[in-house]
Write a protein that binds this DNA or RNA. Structure first.
Lengths: 194, 194
DNA sequence: AGTAGCATGTAAAAAGTTACATGATTAT
DNA sequence: ATAATCATGTAACTTTTTACATGCTACT
């Protein structure tokens, strides 16, 4: 009591607690769950996951049940405790921090005058390729979720995050189209030295 | 030669080189420039900027001209060297890394079932408030840039990054509207303990 | 007299990435 | 046989954030 033993800003903590609040699972399970949904807006690697699990257990936010299947890899299933659920709820009720983004493509375009049209067009094409498939996949997943909305109160919340992705990916693709048109209409002379 | 002395993944390096490629300036100047434009898609703090300047100078990518105004704070103006320009160009021609995003609001909504409607609605309202003003400001800046397109070949590239922001912010706001409507139509029973 | 801006930095801590290490099982 | 998946983790490194430290000038 008194001193808070768990880091406040470490979102890995809350991702773990959030997943365990739904059902007990192993670190490996968490990683898989994260990959198919959460990673789209907040990714977590093994290098963060396993150490954070240890810390959360030491602080009594989660408990570990060792499952030693002889002849198979160890598998430790974690569950959330009441203290952990409290911590999770406290975080959920705090205002969310500002969005954090890093777009290397925009960095390169911002300084794009140095290299000329072709390199910049190629960069935008690559960007578009990254999202044209992803947008369709997300839309399909969104459709599934919309149909299964009644199955669980959580589905509505999952859907909100999927709709976010749908809109943002659509914005990405529209931008790529417009950017390519703009670059093609303004023929710049390229940035190579004479 | 042989070993590359400058870190490959440190984008602060390229932001510095990109700015200096345009004109010589001090670290403090760079920070201000970054704040009004680049920070929207890649922010850099003083704690990264000054140490990176030292390293770039040690590696011969930039040179420092000391300006000791007696009675005023020291001011060191940096310029890019040919080696620095080479490094910048090499980076510009490489494919851009994948976009990196962190949306805490989506994390909270994903686990939003635990706290009930009001907290989630408040989070989305706060998100909307963050961007409704920003979107207008960006649009105004975009208009200026469109009118001044002929003044410099760089303006077209700046405009591309501004259009990106316009589209993405618009997507944010549309999502917020839709999300609020969805939450209000599906009256969930709240997540508090009985 | 106090605040804001100019201008430089450092130190420590936190967060995140990457690579490595181990070893079983299952599918091709 | 070989590759992929299951399953755990550690160590080193890089990156980023936060807080601190200094001191002058100009404005209110």
């Amino acid at each position: 009591m008194g001193v808070c033993p768990v880091a406040i800003d470490n979102r890995t903590v809350y991702i773990i607690l959030g997943l365990l609040n739904h059902e007990p699972m192993s670190g490996y399970d968490m990683k898989k769950r994260i990959e198919v949904s959460i990673s789209q807006f907040w990714d977590v690697g093994f290098g963060q996951l396993y150490p954070t699990l240890k810390k959360l257990e030491a602080d009594g936010m989660i408990v570990r049940a060792g499952e030693h299947h002889p002849g198979r890899p160890d598998r430790y299933v974690y569950s959330i405790t009441d203290r952990g659920r409290q911590l999770l709820r406290r975080w959920l009720e705090e205002p969310a921090s500002k969005e954090y983004v890093r777009y290397e493509i925009l960095l390169k375009l911002f300084f794009g005058g140095l290299v000329g049209r072709e390199a910049n067009i190629a960069a935008i094409e690559a960007f578009r390729a990254r999202y044209s498939g992803a947008a369709d996949l997300l839309a399909a997943y969104g459709e599934e979720l919309r149909l299964a909305l009644g199955d669980s109160p959580d589905h509505l919340y999952y859907l909100l995050t999927v709709i976010f992705g749908e809109k943002v990916y659509k914005a990405y693709l529209e931008w790529a189209e417009e950017a390519l048109k703009l670059l093609q209409s303004h023929q710049s002379s390229g940035g190579d030295q004479p």
